[in-house]
Design a protein around this nucleic acid. Structure first.
Lengths: 230, 230, 230, 230
DNA sequence: GATGAATGAGAATTCATTCAT
DNA sequence: AATGAATGAATTCTCATTCAT
């Protein structure tokens, strides 16, 4: 956690530092990220980092938390509270999540790195926490979806949460490839040309279609589970 | 590629070295893996590594290739050639893949690390190749599935391949959590207690159910009972 | 180039390091010189070298540049500007160069090593630059000498420059042998007993005599070129 | 010195090895030359080198000796015994030496490397021996030249020998540059396009002219035309 | 509070030489 | 006599962290 020293820093300096640190962890994984590069880019003394944070690990935790809060906040602020259906809610959540990613490539890249960070002793906690938060978020959606009858009541909730989470997260890979969008390039250039909403929504249609067919209650169709194991 | 020196090594020594190297790359990502630790564990001279391989990178490539071949070979040998339906084929593929993982935690862990390795100049090629091979495999299944009418003809194939690949790969996370199985612990202990086939199959039922509903044609519907485990 | 860190080092430490590094490169060629030995001798941490310089190569460049500047500076400061004749100017240049060598065996040895350094990728540039600077210096003298009529107008300038340069540079070998002076011993002992000026000048008389007869305009004598090939 | 094992080797194998070793030391200085590369190129076992020679150092001594004998032998065989005048003899010596170099770039490059080899404990002896042989050769010429009255009787013989030796040896640099001839390229290609005799002789004219003016007695002066190329 | 030089354990890699087969 | 795998000390270089100023 940032020290009070950091919090009391002049806004400009604090932001300059944060920007440099975000850049670094957006472009490099934890091990490869260099404290030296950060201080060089931020124009501050190396020792200062250790007056602001407990060390590299602590700084990393702060940045990941920051990025997650921003992204979740953005999504929460963008998905209208009265959108009721599970699938529509999910679609909008992922849609605004993706829009956030494209318009905030630095934060998105950082979160992506954190998600897939090889779990050494230094990063395990952060990754786990990040994943836990996301899982909890999805689980909330699923629970509500079941209650509302949008999802089959007999779903294995853990499995459903897993599938929804993984597809949402890894969707970035699919989008990246499909639209030839490079997050790292976008970071280096300080922003990229986001994918048009329509194109993005088309992919989301595929995703939601898969999930709706897969997870919604039967009407009236598909294979009754009891037949399958008969 | 291993030198002939390595290939001609006495079986025992070669395996001792390979075991130590697999251990190292199963427990650490590329950057963190240490050649020094490997030679210490294998009880050989440091210089020998460079008589066997071109360097750390080459050793890594060899190990990943080895693991991938073993896993794909195991799957190919376990899934009967005459299993025709897409979903059943997919289920068995993932099932035997997971069984392989549980019984070969070292190789599984290595492959997992390689899949999510942060893409630096040294590992990019290996990761990309690994991913490409998997994608191609899945794409083959999907193409056949569409031709056979097991999958809807109007599917966005790229999207379907993406979803199938990601869910298969990340299924490991789900299994890990659900069955409290730690691959790294299993590696450290030299083997773990695999998940019972029935429990594993139960999860696969969830997965295949999702996919079948999501990707199969609407009518005449469902998998004839005899297809399953026939 | 040295970093500002190095430039801002306390004089004593900077000189201690420089001395150790000069010693090392005076006693060993580039390949054989060891950064580890330098830090051991200077009593600093290994990492510090890389805070001061970009690496071994950069350190080497710095030292050679330093030595060359010192030597050229010394010569420039010792040869009176109003010495007009080519041969006298040349004599004094070589004389003071040799005096510099004898009184600064460490720098002299370093420059000598650099001059004859086997041209690998790391040292090629430095050696070439050093040679180019010397050649240019000599060429300047020769051009002026021709304009002043001290040298024959029909000289092959390239050849003359070559001969003057090589004899000046290799004169060190001759002096070394004639006066049983070992530069390396002098370096190891931290200074040697220089050759008396008179003895040194006697050798220079021989050199200048050879060159004067060989390169000065005919008076009235020697063999007209057209006779020779007749 | 080569062991009897080496001497008794089948001609073809012995020559294959020698060729590979010459190549290596022609293209690299002592330190950089690699025993491994030699055995790879020669297609023999590494251990064999140590049955043929005492080690790298001994092998090096053998090769330098070999090259020197070939070059001196070539010169001796090419300069007619009855060429009497000092300068003509010197000219022819250097001329045939240079021709040897251009037509035997491998041996020439090796000798050149040996001449300028940084004097570490391993190479010092070889370099010194090579230099001593050349000096002795030149000294013989000079002594005879003085006796014959071709050189001034009051010459400082040591100095004269030095000057003649250094200019002869370093002439290679001048030729290299003037004719854009790269010995290493010639070695790599297995032979180069030698410089035409006339062009070579033109440079030698400059050299001999300098020396004749510089070292010959003043009267009656010049080389009787019949001496030249008689 | 800011500074930034110092630290030093650890990384990957090299290569002449040895010696059991 | 030939082999070629094994050796291991030595190399250059990295970088998060500390602490005296």
């Amino acid at each position: 956690m940032p020290t009070t020293t950091f919090q009391q820093l002049p806004r400009e300096k604090r932001e300059r530092f944060t920007a440099a640190a975000l850049d670094e962890f957006a472009l490099h994984d934890y091990r490869t990220a260099s404290v030296s590069r950060i201080v060089r880019a931020a124009g501050i003394a190396k020792g200062s980092v250790y007056q602001y944070f407990d060390g590299k690990q602590d700084l990393y935790l702060h940045l990941v938390t920051l990025a997650a809060e921003r992204k979740f906040g953005f999504i929460d602020g963008s998905v209208p509270a009265d959108v009721g259906g599970f699938f529509e809610r999910f679609r909008l959540t992922v849609f605004h999540g993706a829009r956030f990613d494209f318009t905030h490539p630095r934060l998105a890249s950082l979160l992506y790195n954190a998600t897939y960070e090889p779990s050494g002793p230094e990063t395990r906690a952060v990754s786990a926490q990040l994943k836990a938060a996301s899982y909890q978020y999805v689980r909330g959606l699923v629970d509500a979806g079941i209650r509302a009858g949008d999802l089959r009541a007999d779903l294995d909730v853990d499995f459903a949460v897993f599938a929804l989470y993984q597809l949402s997260v890894s969707l970035r890979d699919h989008l990246t490839e499909r639209f030839s969008f490079s997050f790292k390039d976008a970071v280096r250039r300080g922003g990229g040309s986001p994918v048009p909403d329509d194109d993005l929504m088309a992919v989301l249609d595929d995703l939601v279609d898969l999930l709706r067919r897969g997870l919604a209650p039967n009407r009236p169709i598909p294979p009754p589970p009891e037949e399958r194991r008969a």
